[in-house]
Design a protein around this nucleic acid. Sequence first.
DNA 1: TTAACATATGAACGATTATTCATATGTTCA
DNA 2: TGAACATATGAATAATCGTTCATATGTTAA
Lengths: 107, 107
Amino acid sequence: MFKYYYKVIYMNNVPEMEILFELADLFKVFGDSTRLRIMYTLFDDEHSVGEIAQALNMEQSTISHQLRVLRTNKLVKIRRDGKQIYYSLDDDHVKKVIEMGLDHVLE
Amino acid sequence: MFKYYYKVIYMNNVPEMEILFELADLFKVFGDSTRLRIMYTLFDDEHSVGEIAQALNMEQSTISHQLRVLRTNKLVKIRRDGKQIYYSLDDDHVKKVIEMGLDHVLE
DNA sequence: TTAACATATGAACGATTATTCATATGTTCA
DNA sequence: TGAACATATGAATAATCGTTCATATGTTAA
């Protein structure tokens, strides 16, 4: 029983703790429906800001703000083409995290 | 929270959309460092509320409040033994979601 | 029963954050 | 050039949420 205490205390003092804070920040990004819908929109293909805004029927600035959050967290990347900026998922982790979450939600 | 569900029904008819809102709610739960640390503490074994509070050096009521959130979202389950209540991870999805997130955080 | 302990809960406070509005920046083409 | 369009950004507002404090509920043992 005291063994447990020791183990827990030990576990939570190591550098892994700092990583858990980073991890929380990452999940925070996934924890917003607008951002999730944006990412879901980008599942199949890249899309411009305007296209996403129209698809989700939301303000352009709202989408832009949230895309910035996604980009800051390296979840999406951009490609400029003339006046438009096309966003796409940055890597496959994004899909995998979402799919893993879906497993839980879909019971 | 209810506002969002309203929007789903009212604005759009894509069935997957409602699931995305549920998914956002799930990720919200993972998006807090205290809850993540609690879950991480339960990775190896069950622990009582007091043990967790001591391990994380946080108020008992804080842990209790957060355990309720985790339990409401079916991420942890309980076992009563006398005065103590022992919490443990509810299923393997929890571990998998966290590990998948770690993959991204650890570059 | 009562005392002691373990956990849960409600209210209040502070901090964070998503959205909107207005405007700025940046790009193309006449 | 400058007009038109696409995107980004800053400030303000409103809503959400984590923590704390005080207290309630529940359990055990005397």
